[in-house]
Amino acid sequence: MISFLFYVFSALALASAVMVVTRKNPVSSALFLVMTFFCLAGIYVLMDAFFLAVVQVAVYAGAIMVLFLFVIMMLNLSPDELPAFMNRRIKWAAAALAIVLTGSLLFLDLSRRLPASPAGELKGEVGALGDLIFGKFLLPFELTAVLLLMAIVAAVIMARREI
């Protein structure tokens, strides 16, 4: 059952990722991206990472993509103003590059023997994760807070002033 669900989520995630890249209309792209994020959250649940799955939905689907949608709506470009794809030559070169990159990554992955099943049970409970974040990773966590504050200030300045 879990294995079946995993393949369903993976197939959906990959299919909607392809749609994100190929749709001309940015709103469709954004909604397909939300779909991808949902499927990834599903995969996280299957891998016992419950907290991460919820954060994935809340942060990516609930905050970041809403921001994207908000900006797309605010600019509200008409269909003929929408820039679409690079010209054909660049497109083929880019496709070749992406395929080579993915292929070499796949080759690297397949050439080494990783265990298909984990060594034991993993408790993806919030408490254990919290202990790590507020213990071993306390400094990075605090730095993330500073980073977010900086992002807020930067976004406000960029949006206000004519640059």
């Binding site: 879990i2 294995s3 995993f6 393949y7 993976s10 995630a13 990959l14 990722a17 392809v18 994100v20 890249v21 991808t36 995969i43 299957l46 891998m47 679409a84 794809f85 690079m86 660049i90 497109k91 880019a94 496709a95 590059l97 992406a98 395929i99 990159l101 993915t102 990554l105 796949l106 992955d109 990783l114 265990p115 298909a116 099943s117 984990p118």
Partner: peptide, 24 residues
């Protein structure tokens, strides 16, 4: 979950992302 399959899914996703980054 077959973890090797999951790695391949992640790599394919990365590839699709790269493609989109380059052609749009």
């Amino acid at each position: 979950v077959n973890l090797n399959a999951s790695i391949i899914v992640a790599l394919l996703l990365f590839g699709i992302g790269t493609l989109g980054f380059l052609i749009r």
